[in-house]
Each structure stands twice: as C-alpha cells, then as structure tokens.
Write a protein that binds this DNA or RNA. Structure first.
Lengths: 231, 231
DNA sequence: TCACAGAAAGTTGTATGCAACCCATTGACG
DNA sequence: CGTCAATGGGTTGCATACAACTTTCTGTGA
C-alpha cells in the first residue's frame, strides 16, 4: 500500500470505541448479545421476540438488524428473517488472514504519526487489559479494550479508509469468541504482544511494531484453532 | 497475506452485482441516486422528501439510509438527518491506496482458482465495457460492469472476507465519479488494462495479473486527480 | 401409507400517527 | 445595541396497525 499523505482526519471513531462499554440502543444491545453468544450463531432472530426482550418496538429492532446485516454479523432473508452468521473455522481463519495482510502495514505507517498522548493511551490500554486478565475474566470487556488498542494504530495510519476496510474484518463477535478460546498461556502471550507494541511505539520503531503486530495476529489465528496445518 | 485454503464459498454475490442494473427497492434507488450525483455530496437528505420522490413511505427510506450509513455512503446525525458523504480528493486517494495495497494480491491468489467459465465471463465483461466506451457514455452502466469484472477476481481469491474488506473501499459513487473524470485517453487505457487482465487470466499467470491490476488501480488514482505529486 | 391441495398460523414489509428533539426566529430585557 | 430566553416550525425516533408472504399443519383422495 502506498502511504497516503492525508492530514490526520477528524478522528472517525470506530464502532467498537464509540459504543463499547454500554450502548443502550437496540443496535448496541443486539450486537453485544451476539458477541456474548446469548444469540447463538445460526439461530433465527424473531423481530417480535427481540423487541420484547429488549423492551422496544419492532421498528428499532429492524433498523438494528439491517445495520448488523450491512456489517456482516447477521444475514437477512427476505420475508424469512435474520439469522446470526455462523463463522466456520475456515471463516475465522480467513478473517485473520486478511488482518495479517493488512494491519501490520497500517501499524508501520501509523507509528511515525503517533503523538505522545497516543503512546500514553496505548500503554494505559495495555495495562488495563493485563489487569482484566489478572482478575481472570470479562472477555467482552477485554474485547472492547482490545478494539480500542488496535483502533489507535489504525486511526493514526494516515488513511481513514484503512479503518473502514479493517472494520469489516474485525468482527467483535469473532474477536470475543477468540478470546474465550484462548488458553491461559495464549492469553498471556497476547498481552505480552500488546506490551511489546507499546515499547515499539515508544521507540517510534515502525518496523518493529509491524513485525510484532504480524506475530500478534498470526498467534491469534492459531489460538482460534485455525492454524494452517489443521485445515 | 497468507493464502486461506477456503473451499470456494457459496458465491456471496457483491452488492454491486446483486443489484447493479435495476434495483427497485428504496435502498437501490437511493444508492443509484447517490452514484449518479442526483443527490449531491454534502446535501441533506430529508426522509419525507425522499419518500415522496421514490414513492414509498418513510419506513423503507429510513432502513435504506441506515444501511447506506453502515456502508459509509451517507452520514447520520441523530435527530438531524442524513447527508451524503463528501469525498475530498485526499479521501479518494486513500480509497485507491487501500485498493492498491490489497486488490493486486487478491488477484494473484485468485488466478489459479479461475475456471474456464470465469475467464470467458471476464472476457465478455471486458468486451461489453469496451462497447460502452465506444458508444461513448453511460458511466453508471460502465461502473456496474467494472464492479462485476473486479468482483470475479475478488470472489475467486479463496477468502470471502477479502470481498468484505474491499467492498468497504469500492464505493460505487466514487468509482462512477472517477469514470466521469476520466479523459478519453485514460478511459481507453483503463479498458486496455482490463483486456490485459483477461489475457493474464487466460494464461493463468497470477503474477502478471497482479502487476496489471496494480497498474490499473494506480492509474485510476491518478485519473481521479489524486496522484501523489499533487497532494 | 403416501402425495398433494388447502387452510391457518406466524413472520416480515410497509404505512401512518404521535412524541421528542433540534434549530431558527423573534421578542423582551439589561 | 447586544444578549438571552421563549416560541414555533420542521424533522427525526418510535409505536402501532395492517397487508403480503412463507411455512406448516391438516385433511382428503388415490
């Protein structure tokens, strides 16, 4: 990818950041229900049922479903309804393959653009994630922090459309699911990658950060049970 | 990017293909109105107004707008409405940069997977595009054919999420706008690229195709008035 | 027993009405 | 004259009602 000398855009917040912790909208509620597995993959989503569970009418449910469909989290069948997309191991592998091919380069571009405040925030997010892991749980919260961490690099790469493209393959549901499948060791290693990314960012060493990010994503692909040898 | 050995998925048709020529739904109508410039970039979209122009009630309009917002074609402001996103030259450059970094690799992966029928279809699409250019016009139709042409490569690359990610940066409105800005010479050169891609596909030479595609996209970036020297 | 037609139930797609909210104008007051 | 509050028009957000479609069940006939 050629470096686009786009002057830092007006901070297009990612979905994961904008409505990460508590989004009371029907869209946010549904998304978190999918991410948590409360709505199982492959299951049919009945609008009336969801409306009652969330406590709104069908109208906002329908808008949320169409938005989720555009993001690829659910699949709509005309006059038949929506179902949560079921990610096969091959699908998950494909998602991480795209990220592995894309995100490290975005990191390479972004490191020179990072402000001191960015680095401080990266360090803080890394520390918070380690704390969550130490307290042993809340994989959904961890997933949100992780999205914010990665989002900083992506937003600073100088091309806001990189975020657009990557968002399509950073499905919260899949990431949360991956975290849940992590072994204790894999989880600790993942946190170490974050710490090393912070170190590379502090050193403003883009190539180092690029390499760490590639490692990080390929390790995640493996932890998701989708390493090349098994498929 | 590592090649994902995903066994050709059940043909997830792209939006551009599924509803390219005539989509009578409110979503399709709105999308084509934006692509054609009938709804100017930056202008506010009033739901009641659109509903009347298209001849439906506000409900399907609202769903279409939220879907278009998820795709990044319009921007929603809560309680204020939607406006067509305005792509600055830097934005357009960023879009083509992402494509330049991504799509050639997808082509490299896809060429070995192309069936004879795929190659025939590619040749047919290329011929149809040349015919449209020879008849001198219908940039919207050309844009649809172009999307189908590129879509074949993307769908055959063995990773359906590549399509998901690329779709986010292949905005029909931008592509159509780029075509409109093409000079006659740039347009003919673009068609030549297509023909050369067909030749590379017939020869099953992935690296050749990859190189042509990279050329093709960078030429498009330049034609869009966004070559690096000018920004 | 099986196949098929018909009806009935359930679900989605659309239209409409009303409340909440934003914005601009206007008027009064300092 | 400038500032600020009230008010009105206009738009969006949500709830509800109804129409259209899909699926399933049931009953009849071979």
């Amino acid at each position: 990818m050629t470096a686009a000398a786009v002057p830092a855009p007006p901070a297009p917040l990612t979905h994961a950041q904008r409505d990460a912790p508590r989004d009371e909208s029907a869209y946010g509620r549904l998304r978190s229900m999918i991410a948590s597995g409360e709505l199982a993959a492959g299951s049919w989503l009945r609008e009336a049922n969801l409306a009652e569970r969330i406590g709104v009418s069908r109208t906002p449910i329908r808008e949320a479903l169409s938005r989720l469909a555009a993001e690829g989290l659910v699949e709509l069948s005309r006059n038949k309804g929506a179902q949560v997309v079921d990610f096969s191991p091959e699908d998950v592998a494909g998602l991480y393959d795209v990220r592995a091919g894309f995100e490290p380069h975005a990191v390479l571009l972004s490191v020179p653009n990072l402000t001191d405040e960015d680095v401080v925030e990266l360090a803080a997010l890394s520390a918070r994630m380690e704390a969550v892991v130490a307290n042993g749980g809340d994989m959904e919260g961890l997933s949100a922090l992780n999205a914010a961490f990665h989002g900083i690099f992506i937003e600073r790469c100088g091309n806001r459309h990189v975020a657009t493209a990557l968002q399509a393959v950073m499905r919260p549901a899949v990431v949360a699911h991956t975290f849940r499948k992590y072994s204790g060791e894999a989880l600790r290693r993942s946190m170490q990658h974050h710490a090393e990314l912070v170190a590379a960012a502090e050193a403003r060493d883009g190539e180092w950060a690029e390499a760490v990010m590639r490692t990080h994503i390929l390790a995640a692909r493996n932890a998701a049970g989708a390493n090349p040898s098994t498929r």
